[in-house]
Amino acid sequence: MVNLQDPRVLRTRQLIRDAFRALLRSKGFDAISIKDIARHATINRATFYDHYVDKYALLDETIEQAFHAMIPEEVKLAKAFTAERCEQLILMTYGYMVDFYRICRMDSKSIASHVDEKIKNMLEQTIEGIFLNEDNRRLPTCDHIKILSAMTSSTIYSAAYRWLTDGEQDRADLLVNIVRPYVMNGLGSYRER
């Protein structure tokens, strides 16, 4: 097991991640081999396997790191799911998808599905965290919070994905104007019960 606090380990992992991202831009995920990653990172294959089980584990870490780096500080510290936080999550999710799909050549439907599922799960966890932080306990049970988080994240993700695939990429403000009221009205009707 590697010591994740060791500067050499951190440096090696960064070399691997950088090589992987460079290869994603040029080859696409399915065409990338561990040998390719190791060669680009200037390490041997055994060193790669000291750090990652396979390229799927590396993909997961890459997705997670990029997603968490894009979450605005106000969202991380939010005590309530407000219209402003909703807007930030819509723009962040859309921006993440645009960046990821632009950088990565999604040459495999299974990989695209994997990436999409990962994004959906991270968005849902982020929203659930905000709901759990809410000062007033208008959301009665943990089960309700999980369901509301799933519905809210699905709405945001699906709308952002559709916006990306339908080519409205230069008008994220319109996306926000469509999705934010829908989400906030839905949550408002639930909270008024």
Rank of each mutant, 00 (worst) to 15 (best):
I71E: 05
P72S: 07
P72T: 07
E74T: 06
V75P: 00
K76L: 03
F81C: 06
R85A: 04
R85N: 02
R85D: 02
E87V: 00
L89W: 02
L89N: 03
T93L: 11
Y94S: 01
Y94C: 03
G95N: 08
V98P: 02
R102H: 08
R102C: 08
I103T: 15
C104S: 14
C104N: 13
R105F: 06
S108N: 13
K109R: 12
K109E: 13
I111A: 12
A112W: 03
A112P: 02
S113Q: 14
S113N: 14
H114A: 06
D116E: 14
D116S: 10
D116Y: 08
E117F: 07
I119K: 02
K120D: 00
N121D: 09
E124L: 07
T126R: 00
T126I: 05
E128I: 01
E128G: 11
I130K: 01
I130C: 04
F131E: 05
F131N: 00
L132W: 03
L132A: 12
N133S: 13
R137V: 11
R137A: 13
R138Q: 02
P140E: 07
P140V: 07
D143G: 07
H144K: 13
H144M: 15
I145H: 10
I147F: 10
L148N: 07
A150D: 06
M151V: 11
T152L: 05
S154E: 07
I156R: 06
I156C: 04
Y157V: 04
Y157M: 06
A159T: 02
A160W: 00
A160T: 09
Y161E: 15
Y161H: 15
R162A: 14
W163T: 10
L164G: 10
T165H: 13
D173L: 11
L174I: 13
L175C: 06
N177F: 03
I178N: 11
